[in-house]
Simulated scan of single mutants.
Amino acid sequence: MNTMKLGIAVLVAFATVAPALADTIRCESDNGRERYCRGNTRGGVYLQTQLSSSGCYQGDTWGYDGGGIWVSAGCRAIFQTGGNYYPNGYNPNGYYPNNNNNHHNNNNDGAVAAVALAAIIGAAVVASSSSKNKSNSGDSYETTYNNGCNAGTKDRNAGKSRDYTRHSGSYSGSNEQAYSSGYNKCWSN
């Protein structure tokens, strides 16, 4: 296998292993109080499932720092971490709370090691059998977040209700979370 194919194999292996390092954190604001849930958030955080009827808006009723996730104003949700959703450490909410509460951590080091090994072997097979390196990457999280922010600001200034879905043609399904986070953050500012 030549050097370029080996390099591609290693990059594919790392890209495949990153989701395996993800963690699920359930964090709930009780009676409207702020709560901080510890966890490894260095790879980014996104809201996986909202559990509350109260809105969960990134930067408004939830956010995160390097040590965990905070929720407030009745936001209750399950968050996914470890997916590197903020390139170059970009954190759009910038809020860093001081209180510490609960963190639910799933430690699957053995499973991660097995996935890593399978990913490396799979990447080597793919690299050795493929002659082309195809790339189909969409907009970055940051770009999509900023586009949502701009739309949220325009809608707020025009007196429209908070509803990012009216701009559904401006983002793909895989970028919806980034767009909605930016929209909601800037609509409420």
Rank of each mutant, 00 (worst) to 15 (best):
N2D: 11
T3P: 12
T3Q: 15
L6A: 08
I8N: 04
I8C: 07
A9I: 02
V10S: 07
F14D: 12
A15S: 14
L21T: 08
A22K: 00
C27P: 07
E28H: 06
R33G: 09
E34A: 14
R35P: 00
C37R: 00
G39V: 01
R42D: 13
R42N: 14
G43W: 01
G43D: 05
Y46G: 06
L47S: 02
S52T: 04
S53G: 09
S54E: 14
G55W: 03
C56N: 08
C56A: 11
Y57L: 09
W62S: 02
G67F: 04
G67K: 05
G67T: 05
G68Q: 05
V71P: 03
V71W: 02
I78C: 06
G82R: 00
P87E: 11
P92H: 04
N99R: 10
N99M: 15
N105Q: 14
D109H: 15
G110N: 11
A113W: 09
V115G: 13
L117T: 09
L117N: 13
G122Q: 05
S131Y: 10
K134N: 12
K134P: 02
G138N: 12
S140V: 00
T143S: 09
T143Y: 05
T143W: 01
T144H: 03
Y145C: 06
Y145Q: 07
N146T: 11
N150S: 15
G152E: 01
D155P: 04
R156Q: 14
G159A: 12
Y164K: 02
T165Y: 12
R166L: 07
H167I: 04
S168I: 05
E176P: 07
E176M: 10
Q177Y: 08
Y179P: 01
S180N: 10
C186W: 00
W187P: 01
